[in-house]
Design a protein around this nucleic acid. Sequence first.
DNA 1: CGCTATTCCTTGCGACCTCAACAATTGTAG
DNA 2: CTACAATTGTTGAGGTCGCAAGGAATAGCG
Lengths: 164, 164
Amino acid sequence: MAPELPQTIDQPRWLDPVEMQAWRAYVDTVYALQHALEADVAPFGLTMGDYEVLVRLSEQSERQQRMCDLAAELRLSPSGLTRRLDGLVRAGLVSREPSPDDRRVMLAVLTDAGYDLLVRAAPHHVEGVRRHLIDQLDRREVEALASAFTKVRDGLLASQTQQP
Amino acid sequence: MAPELPQTIDQPRWLDPVEMQAWRAYVDTVYALQHALEADVAPFGLTMGDYEVLVRLSEQSERQQRMCDLAAELRLSPSGLTRRLDGLVRAGLVSREPSPDDRRVMLAVLTDAGYDLLVRAAPHHVEGVRRHLIDQLDRREVEALASAFTKVRDGLLASQTQQP
DNA sequence: CGCTATTCCTTGCGACCTCAACAATTGTAG
DNA sequence: CTACAATTGTTGAGGTCGCAAGGAATAGCG
């Protein structure tokens, strides 16, 4: 049985110049911004992935969270989170503890060293977000960005949870 | 010599609610949009990385390009491009040919099969960009997106080429 | 209660990327 | 012309991630 390719689209609605400029600027910005933010946390020995883990854990009461909940928040596969925690545990920033309530569950716990590092790194990360993105825009543009991308995100999430 | 951590930032300028909403919506949108676009080209047996290669080659005269130029355009390391081409060559979409002008150089050449596949896949990709992003916004928002992200991108590129 | 289905985490495997090292070729200075 | 430097592409090693499979524990239904 041959794989079925999508049907031909007879009249594709190509992007006009302004739409194309918006699309290209978006793609380039995403790439450059990701690398700039990685560079901002790299001096602390962190990747952005590591940083996100520390942030989520610090926001939890007791600074701990179930692996599965953490994976869902980070949009990471279970195996991906397991291996990312391996590195953070090795660095002493997070520790693993079995949950007393459910013996299937492992809790990721932010250590004091992890919290201290986050406290030092966070201002630099926020400063980077400001310098690279927010401060490049005036107030009206920031509001437009928030409004527009909230719409786009909600549309994307709706189409994802609907189809499968 | 111990690694020097960045100096402490005394008064970080945290994000206000609107800025935070803009930032979170941006991050979520980037993640969801990337996966949605991957899904749009996956039925053709392509990743977005593969698709980008086909697009760049199709835009060149003779549908061919030097590896190093292609890598620069795709912001890919030389080794990354070598291995991506391996897959495309195996699929018969691209072929490698030594350059007649410079015997160090390998040319990536889009085959007829590669061009045909691109012609079939491109409308679906554009349709995805429209459906997921452009058509979710009104004309004013698309213009604002183009203007704002062009500024941000140029700022990022300037700070990258300046420092190192 | 007992059996099955589900949840949770880990591990093997493959895909994909970068960096460092390398060989081959070309460019350039003396 | 020769020797040294720069460019180009590939390979090996290492890192990250997702999917599929599997073992352990819990939840739910008869």
